[in-house]
Design a binder for these strands. Structure first.
Lengths: 346, 346
DNA sequence: TTATTTAATGTGCTCGTACACATTTATGCA
DNA sequence: TGCATAAATGTGTACGAGCACATTAAATAA
């Protein structure tokens, strides 16, 4: 009897036992006599039995809840793609009994983060998916989840202290290196470089580290590099800061912006009537793409927030539904964007 | 009665009819009285009923066969990723009753292609997935599939004549433009460029067209461009051809290789002790990556053959199993590869 | 009115797995 | 040997959709 799909019934028949016994052998539960075990085990070794995931899931008939905690996309457009990714995956998996609930918090307000996260874990979801942008506060939440046995999946950025969590995102340091390798290809041998942090968040330092490291490894490259942080809340203040900076560093003409706000630097340059300047930045925000097309930004690195969010939900859903193993960490490719390939990533 | 998952039984109960009647309304089959129809229809409009795809599939309990026709990866390593992609997807979907059978042909032998394709469609698979590298021969096969009502999905390259087929791959012309935009960023204003076709296949012309088009659109760029095809079967002949070419075009120092064989050009340069030369090519073959790391190749464009193959099978499987709609065409992003981000794509 | 056709609706089984429950067989002890 | 208990095995049902078949209600003909 050679088939390409065996069922428990088939195995039972072949081993000369009932399907109940086969079930007991497969799941190592209940009492099975030595002889019966051997009969079934022999058959199992001969054939490649893989249970039908569809039937299994139908029987289980459980709805799984995924609670997603992320910054309100209305407050910061950076998070719009994350929301879209979650939505898309949710749409795909709700018919299968995957229940996704979103909790938005204000990315400028730590207390709102705490309130929303409390809410999110209150009803004991099967898993919490979150972007941990506030370090110490996220720590608190992770501790709570640990105690209440709610598994956590992180995306966008890492939490180094909790190694056991699952992470879906990019290697930030490596993305700094990618930026550096691009910069290295398009600037002159003696050009000076500025690393610009706009409204700096802790994880942005990794990008600078990678960027600097890349050039340190190249003995033939000795660019002067300056790291600068701009923290003005408003545009006028920001432009003033930029103006002062370029006055005090007249020879710098290459700029690496470590987050999605490269467009702000371009706009500051425009208002200062600064025409040259090679800029590399992050993310496919509308103004960034506009300046990429105009040539003011040379390259963008795509952090693929949408894909991060989508993949996270996707992995979890397929894990719950069909028992697929979860990766402990998935580092997404670091995509390089130029005018000509930008539209494929939108 | 507000739930988040409704079953046919639920609807039947709510409408005060039997599940048979609900089934008839849902599928518009059999006879249903006006009053019964309205009762059920009212409920259906109130709730968002989506049939459980798992239960539906379990009932159908059909095995679907996907026959894959692709060049033997032992004969040309370019096709290894395609094979891997198919394998990976097959592995994922066999437990669901998706049966994948592969047919390898010799990419240098048209008759072997015809023999294998005959074989592939002989047993009436549910779909044929193929990379149509021989144009007129593929035409014949597509015609046969059309007559025997076997749907066809193409990947790697297009067949312009059969618009109704599904295509998963890249826009080749646009990838030429991407190469051009990269080239434009790293070469000098007056540098001369060669477009190199190694063992030219028809579809490689699209890449050249895109490349040339990009520079034509830039009025401030007036690079002299030469298109050259090398067709030697062996390495010695090839190196001679290259030697002659660079002697007769001493001022050309930028090279766009339109397929995965950029490493051959690098090796020819090495044997000729030519040290300069900016090369942009395609695909993450091992020798290509080696020369990318050594700096001899500046950029590679990733055609993502593995992903093409994987996605094709994936789309088909999810279509068969869960009724997801098939895209008529999916153009994958054109990934730019440099030393620092190469390993993520392997 | 009653028999007969047709329309309308309900019932019950299938798919493969998981698990509760029922039944049979073996073992221990008086 | 009888009887209680435990061990081993078999049986039956649910999950949700889909479809064949059975049943009932309505319409028509005799």
């Amino acid at each position: 009897m050679i088939k390409d799909k065996y069922t428990i019934k088939d195995i039972a028949q072949m081993a000369g036992v009932s399907k109940g016994t086969v079930d007991r052998v497969l799941h190592k539960r209940g009492k099975v006599s030595k002889s019966a075990f051997e009969k079934v085990d022999k058959i199992l070794k001969e054939i490649d039995y893989r249970p039908n995931p569809i039937a299994r899931n139908l029987k289980k008939n459980k709805t799984y809840s995924i609670h997603v905690l992320l910054p309100d996309p209305h407050k910061d457009p950076y998070w719009i793609p994350a929301n879209e990714g979650v939505l898309e995956a949710a749409n795909q998996f709700t018919p299968f009994g995957i229940l996704i609930r979103k909790y938005f918090y204000d990315p400028t307000d730590k207390s709102s983060f705490l309130i929303q996260s409390e809410e999110a874990i209150l009803s004991q979801p099967d898993v919490l998916l979150m972007a941990p942008i506030f370090e110490s506060e996220s720590q608190v939440i992770l501790g709570k989840c640990c105690r209440t046995k709610i598994p956590v999946v992180l995306f966008n950025n890492h939490m180094n202290t909790f190694k056991e969590q699952i992470f879906i995102g990019q290697d930030l340091k490596q993305s700094g290196r990618v930026a550096a390798s691009l910069m290295g290809k398009i600037i002159g041998e003696n050009d000076e470089i500025a690393i610009i942090h706009i409204n700096k968040e802790p994880h942005m330092q990794s990008k600078e580290n990678g960027f600097v490291e890349f050039f340190k490894e190249k003995p033939d490259r000795n660019h002067i590099m300056v790291s600068k942080t701009f923290n003005s809340a408003d545009k006028i203040g920001f432009n003033q800061e930029v103006s002062q900076f370029i006055k005090s560093h007249p020879r710098i003409n290459a700029f690496f912006v470590t987050n999605s706000k490269a467009y702000m630097l371009v706009e500051a340059f425009e208002s200062l009537e600064k025409k040259d300047g090679i800029i590399i930045g992050y993310d496919l925000l509308k103004p960034n793409i506009k300046y990429l097309e105009q040539g003011a930004i040379k390259f963008l690195i795509h952090q693929k927030l949408k894909r991060q969010a989508f993949l996270s939900v996707n992995y979890l859903a397929e894990h719950f539904l069909f028992g697929k193993p979860l990766p402990s960490q998935e580092l997404l490719p670091i995509d390089i964007i130029t005018t000509e390939n930008a539209h494929y990533y939108l």
